[in-house]
Design a protein around this nucleic acid. Structure first.
Lengths: 203, 203
DNA sequence: AAAAAGTTTAACCAAATGGTTAAATTAAAT
DNA sequence: ATTTAATTTAACCATTTGGTTAAACTTTTT
C-alpha cells in the first residue's frame, strides 16, 4: 500500500512551498525557507522536487487548479442566469478573500512562461468556450441583453478579483489602512457586484 | 547651471531601472542588468543610488505617479458625468495598454512595505475623497443611481486594469494566445466598459 | 536476521549577487 | 596652468543561494 512517511513528507513540502511561494513569489522564495517551513532540511527538498523550478511548477499548477472551481458550475447547472451569477460571485469572492495572496501570485507569475501557462490552463478543467456559449444562449433567449459574452465574463472576474489583489492600495485609499473596514467593504461587494452586473445586463 | 553629464546619467539610470524593475520585479531585477541597460557599470549605479532598495523606491514612486493621471481630471472638470467617465475610461485603458507591465508591477510590489506605499500614495496627487465626493454629488443630483461610490470607483478601476494585468491568461483562454486579437478585444473595451458602466448606473 | 530499498541529514561547492574601494580620468573653479 | 571637485572604471569581497554528495538511519522485503 502507499507509504505513509513519503506521502506525509511530500504533503508537508507542498503545503510549505505553497505558503512561501504565494507570499514571496518564485524569485523571492528561498528553498531554505520552504524546508524550514516544512520542518525538514534542504537536501530532502531537492530529493523530492529536484529543482526549485520543478517545485514551483507543481505549486503553480496546484494553486491554479483551485482558483476557478465554482466557475464551471455556472455551465453545468440548470438555474436561471441571475441565480447562477449570484452564486458564483458570492462563492468566488468568499474563496478569494480566504486566500487573498492567491490572485496576486497568479498575476505575478503568469508572465514567466507562456507555454507552461497554456498547458496549465488546459489541464485545469476550465472550458472558456462553454462559459461563453452559455452566456450566448442566455442572450439569444432574451434573458440578458446582447453583448460580447467575453466582456461579460471578464467584467465579472475583474470586479471579483481586482479589489482583493489591490487590497493594500485600496485599503489605504478608502479606509486609512483599517483592515476591518476593508473586510466589510469586500463582504458587501458580494451583494453590490451582483447588483451592478444584473443592472447592466438587463435585456 | 545644472551639470549636463550628471542629469544625463541619472536620467539614463532611471529609464533603465524602470524598464528592468517593471519587467522583472524587485526580486528578479539585477543591478548588473540595470547597469548594462543604462550603458554604465555597476559601481556607478551604486554611486547614484546607493542601494538597490533606494533605486527601487525611486522607480516605484515614479511609476506610481504616472499610473493614475487622468483620474483627477474627473473631479476638476465640469462635464456631465457620462462624458467624464467616457474620457477617463478611454484614456486610462489606452495608457495602460501602452504600458502593459505597469499594473502587474504595482500589484506585485504593493505588498512589500505598507508604510512606504502609504506615503507614496499621499505624494501622488490622488485624492480619493474628492473622487468619492464627486460621485456622491452626481447621485444626489439624480444623475446616477444611488450606490456606494467606492464600489463605483473600484468597479471602474477593476474593469480597466484587470484585463490588462491578466493578459497572458485571458489571451490564452479566449484567443489561443493570438496577440492581435487580444489587442482589438482591449481596444473594443474602451467602448463596452463605458456602456457596461453607464447601463448599470442609470438612475 | 540479513539484504535491499527508501528516507534523512550535515557538510560542502560553485555561481551569482549586492555592494565597496582605490585609483584613474574628466570637468570646473581659481 | 594648477588645484579642486565630480565622474567613471576595474578589481575585489562577503554573503547568499540553488544544488550535490556521501554517509547514516529506517523501513520493507526476502
Amino acid at each position: 500500500m502507499n507509504d505513509i512517511k513519503k506521502d506525509n513528507t511530500e504533503e508537508k513540502i507542498l503545503v510549505a512551498a505553497q505558503k512561501v511561494f504565494i507570499e514571496k513569489g518564485m524569485d523571492g522564495a528561498r528553498m531554505q525557507e520552504i524546508a524550514n517551513e516544512a520542518g525538514i532540511n534542504k537536501a530532502l527538498l531537492h530529493y523530492y522536487f529536484r529543482t526549485k523550478q520543478k517545485l514551483f511548477e507543481a505549486i503553480f499548477k496546484m494553486v491554479f487548479r483551485n482558483i476557478l472551481p465554482n466557475l464551471m458550475e455556472m455551465v453545468y447547472s440548470d438555474l436561471p442566469i441571475e441565480t447562477k451569477l449570484e452564486r458564483f460571485i458570492e462563492g468566488y469572492i468568499d474563496m478569494l478573500w480566504k486566500n487573498p495572496f492567491v490572485p496576486t501570485f497568479i498575476l505575478k507569475e503568469m508572465n514567466r512562461d507562456p507555454q507552461f501557462l497554456a498547458t496549465t490552463i488546459q489541464g485545469s478543467g476550465i472550458r472558456p468556450d462553454e462559459i461563453i456559449a452559455m452566456f450566448k444562449r442566455e442572450m439569444e433567449a432574451g434573458n440578458i441583453r446582447k453583448m460580447d459574452p467575453r466582456d461579460l465574463l471578464v467584467n465579472i472576474l475583474s470586479m471579483s478579483i481586482f479589489p482583493i489583489a489591490a487590497k493594500p492600495l485600496l485599503s489605504i485609499m478608502f479606509f486609512d489602512s483599517n483592515s476591518a473596514e476593508y473586510s466589510t467593504f469586500i463582504s458587501n461587494r458580494k451583494k453590490t457586484v451582483k447588483e451592478f452586473i444584473l443592472n447592466s445586463i438587463k435585456p
